[in-house]
Amino acid sequence: MAAVQSDDPGLTPRSTMSWWFRREARIAPYLYISPFFLLFLVFGVFTVAFTAWVSLHDWHIFDTAAGGGTFVGLDNYARLLNDARFWRSATNTFSILLMSTIPQMLLALVLAELLNDRRLRGPHIFRSGLLIPNITSVVAITIVFQSLFGRHYGLINVALDFIGLDMVNWTSSRIGSHFAIATMVNWQWTGYNTLIFLAAMQSIPSDLIEAARVDGAGRIKRWWKITVPLLRPTILFATVLSVIGNFQLFAQPLLFAPGVGSMGGNDQQFLTILLYLYNMAFRQFQFGYASAIAWMLVLLTAVAALMVYAGVGYLNRRENRSALEVERMRERANARQEAGA
């Protein structure tokens, strides 16, 4: 009935129409947002809650059909705390995290500074060239880098040999494999971060940089003392994203060394937390224990992200002085301008 009225508004008395209108406008938004919430209820809320439930059980894959595993309380978590393999995977993840996030952010800040130049020619070529690694699949990236880091004929070892250095067995060395995996992450994400930093740099008021220039600060000093501190919120955002992403490393270690990759190397030298979870759940079918790993993974991610926040907060407090300095510089520039006028 209501639909007929709305299709033919000219024939309906105005009061009825506006009643239908108001009614419809009140219900419609809930209808429009409901697909997301329905889907999230089933595939989000349920799964997260159920992970917690499963993690309290000794739950083999076959127990699912039988209606559930045996309740063991916090045993899975206790086992996790004493699981040397898990902690090895956690330190591996952390080591790769450091080797990828820090160089990536520094490099992206430098490249963004160089791209942030109105007179730069062909900016589109540089921007799209830097972004293209980011749209490439992790599987494809790992396959290519696995060949570049190959033991005998990999281009990197050939190059090392050519300049007279020793070849490195990238898959068997712990640090070497972390470096290789971090290189893949850096290759994929440096360009993306560069564009994010570039966007933030473009919104810095140019009078600040100009004031520093008038004060005689060179380009490097302007970049490090003014641009980078002003970009801190963006850097924080990018770093937190990078931390979260690094805790989800999976395809790189899985595919890095054919044959032994699924175990993260013979000696678990590049086993990551998520790969360990995957092995526990879908190779050994210990759903209960794997669920405990899932919660621990989330917990460690949150701790790491909070540490980044705390670190930046500390820097902010300590360098309130430098903000004052910037303000003083601005005042001096203004004074100079007024004097000139």
């Binding site: 799964t47 997260v48 699912t64 979260i244 805790f247 998520l274 759940a281 899932a294 989330v298």
Partner: peptide
């Protein structure tokens, strides 16, 4: 909605999601 974007669902929900699909 914004909060849901921060939950690493694919990892945290991996196992129950598999059970659900199995069911």
């Amino acid at each position: 909605v914004i909060a849901t974007m921060m939950i690493p669902l694919q990892q945290l929900g991996l196992i129950p999601l598999y059970m659900l699909m199995d069911r």
